[in-house]
């Protein structure tokens, strides 16, 4: 089974359970049946969105810049060019 099929199957099962609950075929209390259950799909969407936002946002915040690597490289590039020119390699 591919990953898409596995995740799809899980979504179908979860969706069916939700529909059963909405139809009143599950032993749910009155508050759950009337107020919690109908909002579940929306809740899942909101949670997923929040997870994406927090995950990407956090990782963006801790994304490190490495200017020192750039300056080190530039220095080495110069060194390499000088050395290679002395060895008759065509350097721009």
């Amino acid at each position: 089974m591919t990953r898409a099929q596995r995740i799809g199957a899980f979504a179908v099962i979860a969706g069916s359970v939700w529909v059963l609950g909405m139809l009143g075929w599950l032993p749910l209390s009155e508050t759950v049946q009337g107020e919690v259950w109908p909002a579940l799909p929306l809740l899942v969407l909101v949670l997923l969105g929040a997870y994406a936002f927090i995950n990407i946002g956090y990782n963006l915040l801790v994304f490190r810049e490495c200017p020192e690597a750039y300056y080190e490289l530039m220095q080495e590039v110069q060194e390499a060019k000088d050395d290679l020119r002395a060895k008759n390699v065509d350097i721009a």
Binding site: A52, I56, N59, L60, F63, R64, P67
Partner: peptide, 22 residues
């Protein structure tokens, strides 16, 4: 991860990269 990093990327490039990995 800690110790790694990039140079020369603007915010858009970083966001794209982060989003793609996510």
């Amino acid at each position: 991860v800690n110790g790694g990093g990039v140079y020369g990327w603007d915010l858009r490039r970083k966001l794209t990269s982060r989003g793609a990995n996510f």
